[in-house]
Write a protein that binds this DNA or RNA. Structure first.
Length: 564
RNA sequence: UGUCCUGUGGUGUAAUUGGCAACACGUCUGAUUCUGGAUCAGAAGAGUCCAGGUUCGACCCCUGGCAGGACAACCA
């Protein structure tokens, strides 16, 4: 009985949806089929919360040898656009999921939906209501008080039918009439109080154009779309729990055959130090607090992609957060752990000095250059070495030198020795300062017998990264930090908004010096800058001027202990 | 003062038809290291919202509370 076995066994535990599916499979509920769907509304970009849902729906289908459809829930033309459709398709594909030929649109079902509505009208289960929006809202009552019956509720099916046809034909202005399901105005569930099925909207739809001027509401369109696609498990978030009786009511009253879909709800993902609602993300974009939906500080999939996150890291994250029905707030540290885990294994190492100070090796031959071997990735020694130029004048990180260091400072200080990564052990002899006392040069001597790869028995506590002054390339580096300065920007004090919780230092753009080999890297390429963090090349890069985004810092137990 | 959902270490998620609470992240030690990274070894941290009840035995079942969330768009 070893630990590895125990681990793999414990990972076999099922989440509540898997338990339901396995139970359904056992009782042969849907003929042994599992068919899910991911149903985004194309009214914004996908975020990390959607990623959880995508991984869940496609993941469940894969695990149980079923299929998962992509279905755009495009029933509100005033808020939706083709731009969003395209962005959503790109993001899902990038995450690594394939909906094959099953790319569907609720708008493809408008005609069928219309016919089904006619069926309900004929059965006396739906009616055209002539009340205004305000009247309907007022008549609905409140969660604790019943609603009032519409004066149009008992109009004859033939009359409703004729009106419904005229609604479709464009004979009435927006908001003048709606089609309502006839259910129960006294239900304690507000969604059962004769919910609206269709509203009149003379609006251009991004797919159906001007073909329709009545559009179905979510509750009507969604469940029936599930049925038309023969979805077995319709998985949505908790807030739709109260809609389930309505979801079932439509199916109950529609003479369906084949698979009867069932709705299940799980808790959406929440992440601290960010916001997740499309409305708020839209506001950040529209008011210019970020540069766009794909700003690297955004929790959107496109933002994370540009930030340097990999599909594998996001899938791993989705897996680790789990699936349940209780509200949760996931620690950003978990997301960061997932990307570090991936990049540590796969990102090539490279040296870059973010805050340079000049270091001169006094006893190193003037004009000499050595091409040193730097391991590309210690996690994958088989990837071999790269060449890194070394010379008399270098730059090191300003924070790696202290004139008057504290007790456990392992870096460079007067009289002290450190190793320069891949190069030599050096000793600091003296420093040069300007009038204001600012250090401008650090002078050292090196020991030629300590070159990397030699058998050196001397031990030094610290190893520093560096770049050669004559060879290094300047590059723009965007140091990103969390977008919000508080863990719960969604809950500001009275009178404040989440905007007030934005972190004023969420990005700090600097010019750094990077090793010359980076000149050839392309947008999207990811690296570990040794000792500082993971970075990727941004599309804003121009020839001769690379732009790097900091994905995440390395874990830093030194800084952590200093903070205490 | 309605209906529904949910309460397990700091944060998440488990506990196979009731059998003295496990895993991950985080935190803290130590070893190791040419990244104060990674890796390895280990530790602390919950007695499962509360109170009753059933039972030899309850996170799990029952009753009653309490707390949090959702629901009153012609949004999804």
């Amino acid at each position: 009985m070893n630990t590895a076995e125990n681990k793999s066994e414990s990972s076999n535990s099922l989440n509540f949806l898997e338990q339901i599916i396995e139970k359904n499979l056992k009782e042969n509920l849907h003929g042994g089929k599992v068919h899910t769907r991911f149903p985004p509304e194309p009214n914004g970009y996908l975020h990390i919360g959607h990623a959880k849902s995508i991984c869940l729906n496609f993941g469940l289908a894969k695990k149980y040898a079923g299929k998962c459809n992509l279905r755009f829930d495009d029933t509100n033309p005033t808020k939706e656009s083709i731009e969003y459709v395209n962005a959503i398709r790109e993001d899902i594909a990038w995450l690594g999921f394939d909906w094959e030929e099953r790319e569907y649109y609720a708008s493809d079902y408008f005609e069928k939906l219309y016919e089904m509505a006619v069926t309900l009208i004929n059965k006396g289960k739906a009616y055209v209501c002539d009340m205004s929006g305000e009247e309907i809202a007022a008549g609905r009552g409140t969660p604790s008080t019943p609603g009032r019956i519409s004066p149009w509720r008992d109009r004859k099916p033939e009359e409703s039918l004729a009106l419904f046809q005229k609604m479709r034909d464009g004979e009435f202005p927006d908001g003048s009439r709606v089609l309502r399901a006839k259910i129960d105005m006294t239900s304690p569930n507000m969604h059962m109080r004769d919910p609206v099925m269709y509203r009149i909207m003379h609006a251009e739809h991004h797919r159906t154009g001007a073909q329709w001027c009545i559009y179905p509401m979510y509750d009507w369109a969604h469940g029936q779309s599930d049925y038309l696609e023969q979805i077995t498990h319709s998985i949505c978030t908790l807030e739709f729990d109260v809609h389930r009786p309505l979801y079932d009511w439509f199916l109950d009253n529609l003479d369906i055959s084949g698979i009867r879909p069932r709705q299940f709800e799980f808790a959406r993902l929440n992440l601290n130090y960010t916001v997740m609602s499309k409305r708020k993300l839209l506001e950040l974009v529209e008011k210019g607090f970020v540069t766009g939906w794909d700003d690297p500080r955004m929790p959107t999939i496109s933002g994370l992609r540009r930030r340097g996150y990999t599909p594998a890291s996001i899938r791993s994250f989705s897996d680790k957060v789990g699936v349940a029905k209780r509200n949760n707030v996931i620690d950003m540290a978990l997301l960061e752990h997932c990307i570090r885990e991936d990049l540590n294994k796969n990102a090539p190492r490279v040296m870059a000095v973010l805050d340079p100070v000049r270091l001169i090796i006094d006893n190193y031959p003037e004009g000499q250059t050595e091409e040193l071997d730097g391991l590309r990735n210690p996690e994958k020694p088989e990837n071999g070495y790269r060449k890194v130029p070394f010379s008399k004048e270098l730059f090191i990180e300003r924070a790696d030198f202290m004139e008057d260091p504290p007790k456990k400072f392992f870096r460079l200080s007067p009289g002290n020795e450190v190793r320069l990564k891949y190069a030599y052990i050096i000793r600091c002899e003296h420093v040069v300062k300007d009038e204001s006392g600012h250090i401008t040069e650090i002078h050292c001597t090196y020991d030629p017998e300590t070159k990397s790869g030699m058998d050196v028995q001397r031990k030094v506590k610290g190893t520093l990264h560096w770049v050669s002054a004559d060879h290094a390339l300047p590059a723009e580096v965007r140091l990103y930090d969390r977008l919000f300065s508080v863990p719960n920007p969604d809950e500001p004090e009275q009178g404040k908004s989440f905007i007030d919780k934005l972190n004023p230092d969420s990005v700090n753009t600097i010019t750094a010096l990077v090793e010359p080999g980076l000149a050839d890297a392309s947008p999207g390429d990811k690296f570990q800058f040794e000792r500082t963090g993971y970075f990727c090349i941004d599309n804003d890069s121009k020839k001769g001027r690379q732009v790097f985004n900091r994905t995440v810092t390395l874990r830093d137990s030194w800084q952590k202990s200093m903070g205490r």
